[in-house]
């Protein structure tokens, strides 16, 4: 049968049963439909029950894993940002504290220095007034002694000039007259 089919096909395709264009040969349809139903049906079951759940599962696991990882990354990022903010806050606070301490120390030191200076100035001006008082005292004392010296000098001058002793009272009067007292 196959031999005759080939030999006739070699001559021409149009005539006879063996020359029927194979895809349009209806005698093969029943067998093809049956075997297609069997094989495709089996294929469908294999796909639906084994392969697709498997690949779908792989994709789902990966999807979940990536989503989970992204979430974890976001959480960690938020955490690190919070830590950064806390650090910044602590730093600012420390800076503020340090400035406060520095200002306080400066004020304390300034006050101390001022107080010491005031004390020193007060001591010095006390000494100055004391010294001035002593100077004035010495001056008045000296000025008081000047009159005596003048009187003595007058007595001595007169005695040397005219060779006679003038009375003490006259000398005092004369000195007073000269100095305008």
């Amino acid at each position: 049968m196959a031999e005759t089919a080939h030999t006739t096909a070699e001559v021409q395709h149009g005539g006879g049963h063996s020359g029927v264009f194979p895809p349009f040969d209806s005698t093969t349809f029943a067998s093809q439909i049956l075997w297609l139903a069997i094989t495709f049906g089996l294929f469908y079951v294999l796909m639906a029950k084994v392969v697709l759940p498997r690949i779908g599962g792989i994709l789902e696991v990966r999807h979940d894993r990536i989503a989970g990882d992204l979430e974890e990354a976001n959480r960690l990022k938020a955490e690190s940002e919070a830590a950064g903010a806390a650090y910044e806050k602590a730093l600012a606070e420390a800076r503020r504290n340090a400035q406060g301490i520095a200002a306080e120390t400066r004020a304390k030191l300034a006050a101390e220095v001022d107080a010491k200076r005031h004390a020193a100035e007060a001591g010095l001006s006390g000494k100055i007034t004391e010294a001035e008082a002593r100077i004035a005292e010495i001056k008045t004392k000296a000025l008081g002694e000047v009159d005596g010296i003048a009187v003595d000098t007058t007595e001595a001058l007169i005695a040397a000039l005219i060779g006679e002793q003038v009375g003490r009272d006259d000398a005092v009067a004369a000195v007073a007259a000269v100095t305008g007292k």
Binding site: T27, T28, A30, S31, Q32, L34, W35, L36, T39, F40, L42, F43, L46, M47, V50, V51, R54, I55, G57, I58, V61
Partner: peptide, 30 residues
Amino acid sequence: VDLSFTNSSLFMAATVIVATLFLVFASSGR
């Protein structure tokens, strides 16, 4: 009715086997 197992049936079966084996082995690593 002629329901013979033909070369067409053979390649239908081959198609199913090749496609299934490929997909099963390719996804076996998971």
